[in-house]
Every structure is written in structure tokens, then in C-alpha cells.
Amino acid sequence: MLPTVSEPPAGEVGALREAHLGAFRFMLRARLLDDKFAALYRAGKIHGGVFLGRGQEALSVAVGISLVKTDVFAPLIRDGAGRLAFGEPMLDAIRTYLGSALGSMRGRDGNVHRGRPHAGLLPMISHLGAMISVVNGMLLARQLKGISGTVGAACIGEGATSTGSFHEALNQAAVEKLPLVLVVANNQYAYSTPNARQFACADLADRAAGYGVAAHSVDGTDLTDCLATVGAAVAGARAGGGPQLVVANLLRLCGHGEHDDASYVASALKKSGLGRDCLKIAEDILLREQWADAAEIAVWRSAALREIEDHVAQVQREPAPDPFAEAWTALSSQHLSEGQVQ
């Protein structure tokens, strides 16, 4: 484990400060972008659903920021902050939500289903648990090609830990000793289903031992803890320690999607430590440590708002996909395409 914030040596204070400042700005941009998507949704400007990461930015950003460009990242529906930190252009998110033909998914897929596989950023399919073994495959391929030092991170909710895919993939990673970091955001509900109806073990992190992988537990509301714990997990995987299971406890501070009012979330949970807003806590850390002052934060906020408004305005002028220009073939081998079968 990395040293905690209490009394690190001087050189590390600088690194810690930089990490917090960088992470906070990604969190802030992700939160404001989410707010914009929610507004666009309410205005009827988005086709289909909107899924936000409110309350999960600290954990998500810790994943994105702990990875390097050549790593592999399979984010899920609440990873706007991690995506930005990993290097996904904000335009990709906006173009995919607004269905721009210029986006990486070209209107063929929407909202959180976006990525750039050759940049190491995997585009999730909806089926929960299915991306983990794909990360395994990229990691194994790199081993076969003689490339070392790569880490692959996959994010998932506690609900998805109940899938067969999750089990198969974690076991597979353990058998191959792959540098997989599997990050579980235990936000207490899978859509409306509370943990008591999802699993019966005391703590999901206990499962790691059963797979023969390392376990890490983290307070998902606390940026400092997230950076330290996820950072340690990524470092452990990179150092050859095999798969790392990170389980974060937190609460999602929004509905499952913007169509959902989350009325099923127990008020006791909202009032508990889990219900703290990680962005507010991160801001408090910056102020307390005097790593930033309120004026600076206000500047970052307005810069982020301007960035978002400019991008949205740009994307709204971009062409929508054209059904007449579509190739309408799912094969890359065009000559094997069946074309329009009568």
C-alpha cells in the first residue's frame, strides 16, 4: 500500500498534491458534463437513455489516472471521470450521446457504449460482465507478443459480480496470472435491487481469496483513499502480482439512468457516510491541504463549463448519420457480405 496522507516525505507531498489536483479537475469536468447530459435529456435532445456517474467520480478517476496511455481500460456506465483521465476526448462522449456521425461510434451505438479499441479504450457492450474477459484477451495477447508492463482495468458494479461472465473472467485472469485490475463499485443498488438481494457474503472483497487474487477495499467517497488504493492495485498488477480485485463502497447519487428517480434508495443510506458526495469531499481536501483555493476552483469550474458548452454547440452542428450512406454490412470482409437479401 502507498503511504496515506498523514505524513508522507516531502517529495511525495508534491506527487500527492499533483495527483489530487489532476484528479479533482477530471472529476469536476465529468460532473459538469453529466449535468449537461441530464439537462439535454430533460430537453429531449438525446435519443435513448442517459447514465450518470454522480457520486462515483473519485473511484472512477482513480482508475483512469492510475493507468498509462498504453494500458487497457474497460470502463462501464458510471466512468465519465475515469474516461477523461485515461484520455478519452470529451468530444467522444458528446458525439456519442448526440449521435453525431463524426463520433467514434458514428451513430451506430450511443451514450456510454463508446470507445476506441486500438487506443486501449474498450467500448462496453450492454451485457454486464462481458468486458472483463476481453481485457484478459488483450493482456494475454500482449504477453504472447512479448510486450510487458501493461495493465488492464475493468470497472463494474456490484450487481454485475453476480454474472457468470464475471466469475469466468476473474478465474481466467487468475489462472493466467494476468495484470488485471477489476474494480467493483459497490453502490448498494443494482438498478433497484439492494445488496441483500444480490449477494450473501459479508464483503465482496472476501471473494478475492476464493479466486486466488489480491483484494483491496476502499472508501469510494474519499479521493485520497481511492488514489492510494487503486494506485496500489495498479502498481501491484504492473509489478507482476497478478489480478487485483478492488471493492469500493459508495452510493450512486442519481438514478440508475435519468429516467429513474431512485426513490428506492433508503434515506438512512443517503445520510450515512456512503452518501457523502465525493466531489465535495475532494474539494474539501484541496482546500484543507491548501493545494487550491476557492477562487482557483471557481476558475476551473467556469473553464469546464465553457469547454462543455463549446463542444456541445459544435456537435449540435455536426451531421447526423445518413441511412442512405450507410454500408449496412456488419462484416469487414465486404465481399462476404450478403447484401440486401430479399
Binding site: G137, R142, N171, Q172
Partner: peptide
């Protein structure tokens, strides 16, 4: 050697791994 690998009884993860390897340019 090293190119014909036993897999656990995990058909889902077997195919998922193949897709990941294909993204990396392999032909599983």
C-alpha cells in the same frame, strides 16, 4: 510451445479472451 493453451471450462471467457486478443492483432 506457448501457442496452444488449455482453457478453464469457461466458454464465455474463452470467447471474450479471443475477442480481446483479436483487437490486439492476434488471430485466435
Amino acid at each position: 510451445p506457448g501457442r496452444v493453451l488449455d482453457a478453464p471450462i469457461s466458454e464465455d471467457a474463452i470467447v471474450g479472451l479471443a475477442v480481446g486478443a483479436a483487437i490486439e492483432g492476434m488471430r485466435p
